[in-house]
């Protein structure tokens, strides 16, 4: 039974990897005041680009670069529409998801139904993997990107909260007018964060098609992009909290398969969303109205002199 806990943790780590990468990206995007509902679209474009390039070159890491580039390019589209042209960010994000799902399917026709020749192999973390009981189960065979996601969360947390760069991003998201007045290039920063978010979603998609399930299938992200969006919010826009949130989401997902004789799996899979609402409510009640850390200017395109 003790093993069961560690097994759940190990699977939660693996399953939460794509969620974490994509959510970290979205956290940075939303911290700068932009909402991108196109995570699912960017993720799946990353998945097909990664797969196609890895299959062609034989190197999954080159594939990962392609996945990042594809995610970033897709995000650039959103940046142009939602930030530069100040179109509606929600429609732009939704359009990006629809477009991404369609385009990836179209490109993917040539790649469907074939396994990846050289997939990313899981690794054993030296030292930690030889711990008794926990070691082999938790540290024995995870992907590099799983540990990479945790590291990325730490780095982003430091950047966001303890560097000038982070302060700039947060200011742009909290009060773009003030940032502008202070001489910060608001739009340029937002474009960069949106593209960064796309690159991170690309990593998430690449992980799926290169490591988690090394093959291409149409619609293989299967809603994970939307979960990542929920996750960014559930984590209250904090990269470190995102790690725990991702693990919790991952645990619920895997438990839906190990506890299903005791509990309806649909209701277990529903929990993360319910928890997100509860987390927001609880934080608001505890800290007072609206004080749960949502970037003040979230979702509002910025133009000087407008509100």
């Amino acid at each position: 039974m003790d093993d069961q806990v560690w097994i759940t943790l190990a699977r939660a780590l693996a399953f939460s990897t794509p969620l974490l990468w994509a959510a970290l990206g979205e956290i940075i995007v939303e911290r700068s005041g932009v909402v991108n509902l196109g995570v699912e679209g960017m993720m799946i474009l990353g998945a097909i680009a990664g797969f196609a390039v890895a299959q062609t070159t034989g190197d999954p890491w080159v594939g990962l670069l392609a996945a990042m580039a594809a995610g970033g390019a897709a995000a650039l589209l959103h940046a142009v529409f939602a930030v530069l042209l100040r179109s509606d960010p929600y429609v732009s994000g939704l359009a990006l998801t629809i477009f991404g799902l369609g385009l990836s399917g179209l490109i993917g026709r040539a790649w469907v139904g074939r396994p990846l020749q050289n997939a990313m192999e899981p690794i054993s973390l030296p030292g930690l993997a030889s711990l008794p009981v926990v070691g082999e189960i938790v540290f024995g065979r995870q992907h590099i990107l799983t540990w990479g996601g945790l590291l990325a969360a730490l780095i982003l947390w430091v950047l966001l909260h303890h560097t000038r760069l982070g302060l700039i991003v947060r200011t742009v998201g909290e009060n773009p007018a003030a940032a502008d007045a202070a001489g910060l290039p608001v739009l340029r920063i937002r474009i960069l964060t949106v593209v960064f978010g796309g690159v991170m979603a690309g990593v998430a998609g690449g992980f799926l098609s290169l490591a988690y399930r090394p093959s291409w299938g149409q619609g293989m992200t299967n809603g994970l992009g939307w979960i990542a969006l929920a996750l960014a919010i559930f984590a209250l826009w904090d990269p470190l909290r995102a790690v725990f949130a991702a693990l919790l989401f991952g645990a619920f997902f895997t438990l839906a398969y190990s506890l299903q004789s005791q509990f309806p799996p649909q209701l277990l899979t529903m929990m993360p969303y319910l928890f997100t609402i509860l987390a927001l409510t609880f934080t608001a009640v505890r800290k007072g109205r609206g004080a749960f850390g949502a970037p003040e200017a979230l979702g509002r395109p910025y133009a000087r002199g407008e509100r």
Partner: peptide, 16 residues
């Protein structure tokens, strides 16, 4: 159609 679910269900059973 549920690749992620299949993956997790398979992993869970193999672990057991």
């Amino acid at each position: 159609f549920d690749p992620a679910g299949t993956k997790e269900a398979t992993e869970a059973m193999i672990a057991e």
